[in-house]
């Protein structure tokens, strides 16, 4: 149930750690696994905590900065998701992967399990990057 203001973990190496949902695209309801959303990067990975004006040398590899607005795909939800065969999957956190406007992932690696619904939604690139899908 990803909607406006939902905070999600970002599980790729694009540099974002925590992002906030700003918009669910193409529908007037909450986003589920495989849905595309717009997010605002709230927290960077490996960002020095010395202050807002600190150098960002540590995050040179980071492709996104705090405050960036990006597209993302939801890959895990806390909300139970029922499959057509009657099984239900539920993760302990909400997570997403940042993508560009063309739909390609910004990061090159994913760490963490993702939902198999991505296959149905034609996110095979994300699925192939993921270490595990369920």
């Amino acid at each position: 149930m990803i909607q406006l203001k939902t905070m999600l973990n970002c599980i790729d190496n694009s540099g974002a750690a925590v992002v906030e949902c700003a918009k669910v695209l193409k529908m007037k309801r909450h986003a589920k696994i495989g849905d595309r959303i717009i997010v605002v990067v709230q927290k960077q990975r490996n960002f020095s905590e010395s202050g807002p004006g600190a150098s960002v040398s540590t995050s040179a590899a980071n492709k996104v900065r705090r405050g960036d607005i990006r597209h993302a795909v939801v890959v895990r939800t806390k909300k139970k998701l029922q499959r057509p065969d009657g099984s239900v999957v539920k993760f302990d956190d909400n997570a997403c992967v940042l993508i560009n406007k063309a739909g390609e992932p910004i990061g090159t690696r994913l760490n963490g399990v993702v939902g198999t619904e991505l296959r149905k939604m034609k996110w095979s690139k994300i699925l192939s990057l993921a270490p595990m899908h369920l």
Binding site: G86, K90, F91
Partner: peptide, 14 residues
């Protein structure tokens, strides 16, 4: 799995 808690329901007669 990969340090993320996962819960799944299965229908045993499925």
């Amino acid at each position: 799995l990969t340090r993320v808690g996962v819960e799944m329901w299965f229908k045993i007669y499925s």
